[in-house]
Simulated scan of single mutants.
Amino acid sequence: MIRSIKSRYHFKRTEAKPKVNRELEGFDIKINSSGEIESSYTVDQLNEFLNKNVFDKKLKNTNE
Rank of each mutant, 00 (worst) to 15 (best):
F27L: 14
K60L: 12
S7K: 12
S40N: 07
F11D: 02
G35Q: 06
N21E: 03
D44C: 09
S7G: 08
M1K: 08
I29H: 06
V54A: 14
T14K: 01
T14L: 05
I2R: 13
K58G: 05
K60V: 08
F27E: 06
K19V: 02
K57Q: 01
K58V: 01
P18I: 05
S4P: 02
D44N: 11
L24S: 08
V20H: 01
A16N: 00
K52S: 08
K12F: 00
N21R: 03
L46I: 14
F11Y: 15
S34W: 03
K58I: 01
Y9Q: 06
V43S: 10
K60A: 14
K60R: 12
D28V: 11
K57G: 01
E38Q: 14
S40R: 04
Y9D: 04
H10R: 09
Y41D: 03
E15W: 14
K58S: 09
L50Q: 09
R8K: 11
N61S: 10
G26K: 03
G26W: 10
N53V: 10
N21K: 03
E23Q: 12
T62D: 02
K52A: 08
I37Q: 05
M1I: 09
G26E: 06
I29R: 08
I2M: 09
N32R: 07
D56F: 04
F49L: 02
N21S: 04
E48M: 13
G35A: 13
N53P: 02
K17Y: 04
K17V: 04
